[in-house]
Design a protein around this nucleic acid. Sequence first.
DNA 1: CGAAGGCTTGAGGAGTTTCAAGCGACGTGG
DNA 2: CCACGTCGCTTGAAACTCCTCAAGCCTTCG
Lengths: 230, 230
Amino acid sequence: MTAEMTPPTSSLARAGVRPVPAAVYEGGLFADCPELIGTPFTYARDEEVYGEGEEAEFVYKVVSGAVCTYKVLSDGRRQITGFHLAGDLFGFEHGPAHRHTTEALADTRVLVFSRAQIERVATGRADVACRLWSLAARGLGHAQDHMLLLGRRSAVERVAAFLLDVDARLGGTGRFALPMTRRDIADYLGLTIETVSRTLSQLESEGALLRTGSRDVALRRRQIRRCIED
Amino acid sequence: MTAEMTPPTSSLARAGVRPVPAAVYEGGLFADCPELIGTPFTYARDEEVYGEGEEAEFVYKVVSGAVCTYKVLSDGRRQITGFHLAGDLFGFEHGPAHRHTTEALADTRVLVFSRAQIERVATGRADVACRLWSLAARGLGHAQDHMLLLGRRSAVERVAAFLLDVDARLGGTGRFALPMTRRDIADYLGLTIETVSRTLSQLESEGALLRTGSRDVALRRRQIRRCIED
DNA sequence: CGAAGGCTTGAGGAGTTTCAAGCGACGTGG
DNA sequence: CCACGTCGCTTGAAACTCCTCAAGCCTTCG
């Protein structure tokens, strides 16, 4: 691990986090790209990975756990722009600084990559640059779907769509534990925690889902889907 | 102009639009990339450039005029995801099909590029692929800003931010003609036309702007900016 | 065992939408 | 050339959805 590859240590020290032995978790950004090897790192629950305005020095890949990226207004209103689960990349930026904040929703293992090195490799290898392009394009597509949700969907539709999305990303079995709090869900869906809570209760009373714990749900996916106009 | 480069003619014929002589408007996708030359085309006001679900065969660059891209729900609710003015690119997709619809807000001249050709060039030239990556990343950044607006901002903040954005893109003089209708603005900001109209009236009554025609506005930018928490 | 934090539920209220009416600009046809 | 219909925009009143404020419950953790 070179000096260049060391993320700002303040937040790590704060949480008492230390890098795990490289040999155990080391992996590439892309399967077929041995030049881009990430350094394993871990972040504790609620720990900030980077903040808005900080220099965008690193790019990250989730190994296990979950993080979310968000923007906050000066009066505290917050919009979560995305959740990143195992396998997802985050931390890419267009300019020199991070345009949002990222924090861990749970204890999370990541691979850290040097942005400068990725860009160096990309300028030389068109296939790598194309994968980065593809990645950004996929993210853009998702963002556009989410704009439709935020701009035009009702509370029930938002929550229903969210549940189906999480289910799909967590295996698609219809049963799962939400990896985030009501506040996170609310800030992702542009609602309040009370509305999220009420909407979940409503869906449960209609028999569209079953809650075993406050985080654990079992969906009747047919019925949930019927809540969503498309 | 090869057969491959001919956009579906139905909509063109409908509007009586014909390609203008290539020598006049022909230009590249990027300044330094002579391989990627676009074919000039024009679309009439309200004409659809492509629809959601259609094969994403072409990519477009606005020469003059304006277009918007949007998604619609089956019950008619619509979310505009972006306005594209002179110089802007649109029509890039991640998958094989367009994920949204694009139509012209005014009579619009564009350059049409073959997507397959762009992708061929990109797989061979890392610099081109990097510019495409950069383009997508910029779009993603904008989308994230817009999510914050849609999820967390009030009507006044949305309209104020919108006015400043249009002003900046139209020269930044503080005086301009809105290239889109109230319906378009509303569908971009996640509001109704009535709310947009009322909010403009409110801003005018507060002296934050002056309307000379229904589309022509002069901003007091300081005052408009004060409406927006950041 | 007590405090803190996350979640739920209720009551009331604010902001935005819905429904409705009217105005003005524009284009068309008599 | 003017009447008329259309379309985009504005404004008002009422309704509705979601938010705010508040209280209480449950779980977790020290």
